[in-house]
Amino acid sequence: MKALAYEKAHPLEAFALELREVDEPQLRETDLLIEVRAVGVNPGEASIRQMRSAPPGGRVILGWEFAGVVAKAGNGFAVGDRVMGTGDITRDGCWAERLAVDYRVVTRIPDRLSFTDAASLPIGGLTAWEALFRDRSELPPGVENVLVVGGAGGVGSLGTQLLKAKTSALVISTASRPESREWCTAMGADLVVDHSADVAGQLRTAGVERIDLVLSTKGTAANINWLADVLKPFGHLATTDLASSTDIEPLIQKSISVHTEMVFSSVIADHNLHRQGAVLAELVEHARPIVTTELHGLTVDSMREAHRLAESGRTIGKTVITV
């Protein structure tokens, strides 16, 4: 089969992915074989491309957000079932014609969704769900308002939608450009503030004295002082990008609970995988697609453009490549 692969980690200007012939995926007992029809492209995958090299004589196939068709029956799925899901960061990804994936991180696609639309949901939706709700289906006790930092990105967009669909919380998003502010409002945010300005002052002007929970999807380390400022004592910070070097002293002074999130934790630890499939099934009932850029064909050119957008830091919604 054909797949986009590379050997050595590299920057965007030396983009080295090639469309090459590779072996068919080998199925494990809990795997499905999927014919890939669309893939979502994420900033995290662009970061991995810059850091991960293949072992000697090997190659790397990235991509862990897909929609496609079951090609081999098994594990409760039939040939021809339309499905979407994530995958396993330690295995070959979906930038290929076919993918082996654990059935527990897959769900069926409703007829109303195209493959392209479905591929925009899994990674952002699962990340937002686990960051906000952890292993529950509701927010921590006492949370009445939530601030979503980076509300126009994939995680922020779907986190806002989940909050509005599943909770009664006041949802505040951050965005610094007119088009991203407009997008956050369209996702359901009750209030949008500019994270490049005085966030605490903007919140006070809007009548919000303290935030109960922050979902931070970008810039957590750089923002740590104003995040600590706006959070209430004993509040919650859920973050998808907390660096090991982050100085959390400002949070400690207010006894803030810090919740880190990495969407592949359940897969790597083989912990409660069925829950991820169940979350995806609920996600398609609560969230609408967030495709803003659709590229065509699993080609070097389309993937290079997707990575350029991902690395720009200015992407709204999700970039999807239709295969």
Results as ranks from 00 to 15, higher is better:
residue 1 M to E: 12
residue 1 M to W: 11
residue 2 K to R: 15
residue 8 K to M: 12
residue 11 P to T: 15
residue 13 E to F: 09
residue 16 A to I: 08
residue 18 E to Y: 11
residue 18 E to T: 13
residue 25 P to E: 14
residue 26 Q to R: 14
residue 27 L to F: 13
residue 29 E to V: 14
residue 33 L to R: 10
residue 34 I to A: 12
residue 34 I to G: 09
residue 35 E to V: 11
residue 35 E to M: 09
residue 36 V to M: 09
residue 39 V to C: 14
residue 39 V to W: 07
residue 41 V to R: 09
residue 47 S to M: 13
residue 51 M to A: 12
residue 56 P to N: 11
residue 58 G to N: 10
residue 59 R to S: 11
residue 63 G to K: 06
residue 67 A to Y: 10
residue 70 V to Q: 06
residue 75 N to S: 07
residue 77 F to L: 06
residue 78 A to K: 14
residue 80 G to S: 05
residue 83 V to P: 01
residue 91 R to F: 00
residue 91 R to Q: 15
residue 92 D to F: 01
residue 96 A to K: 04
residue 97 E to Y: 03
residue 100 A to E: 12
residue 100 A to K: 00
residue 100 A to L: 09
residue 106 V to Y: 06
residue 109 I to Y: 11
residue 112 R to H: 12
residue 115 F to L: 03
residue 115 F to K: 00
residue 116 T to H: 02
residue 118 A to T: 01
residue 119 A to K: 01
residue 121 L to C: 02
residue 123 I to L: 15
residue 124 G to Y: 03
residue 126 L to Q: 04
residue 127 T to Q: 00
residue 128 A to M: 04
residue 131 A to H: 05
residue 139 L to R: 01
residue 149 V to E: 02
residue 156 G to A: 12
residue 158 L to Y: 03
residue 159 G to S: 08
residue 160 T to P: 02
residue 160 T to C: 04
residue 160 T to I: 14
residue 165 A to W: 04
residue 170 L to S: 05
residue 172 I to G: 00
residue 178 P to H: 06
residue 179 E to Q: 13
residue 183 W to N: 06
residue 184 C to L: 04
residue 185 T to Q: 10
residue 189 A to Y: 02
residue 191 L to V: 04
residue 192 V to Q: 01
residue 195 H to F: 07
residue 198 D to F: 02
residue 198 D to T: 01
residue 200 A to Y: 04
residue 205 T to I: 07
residue 205 T to H: 10
residue 207 G to W: 02
residue 211 I to D: 02
residue 212 D to I: 01
residue 212 D to L: 02
residue 213 L to E: 00
residue 215 L to R: 03
residue 217 T to W: 03
residue 217 T to S: 07
residue 224 I to V: 13
residue 225 N to I: 02
residue 233 P to I: 15
residue 233 P to E: 10
residue 238 A to M: 12
residue 240 T to I: 14
residue 244 S to K: 09
residue 251 L to R: 04
residue 252 I to F: 12
residue 252 I to H: 15
residue 255 S to K: 10
residue 255 S to N: 15
residue 258 V to I: 15
residue 260 T to N: 10
residue 263 V to E: 07
residue 263 V to I: 14
residue 266 S to K: 14
residue 267 V to Q: 15
residue 273 L to E: 00
residue 277 G to W: 03
residue 281 A to L: 04
residue 289 P to D: 10
residue 292 T to K: 13
residue 297 G to Q: 11
residue 299 T to P: 05
residue 300 V to A: 09
residue 301 D to E: 15
residue 301 D to R: 15
residue 302 S to E: 07
residue 304 R to G: 04
residue 310 A to Y: 11
residue 311 E to Y: 13
residue 314 R to Q: 13
residue 316 I to R: 01
residue 317 G to V: 06
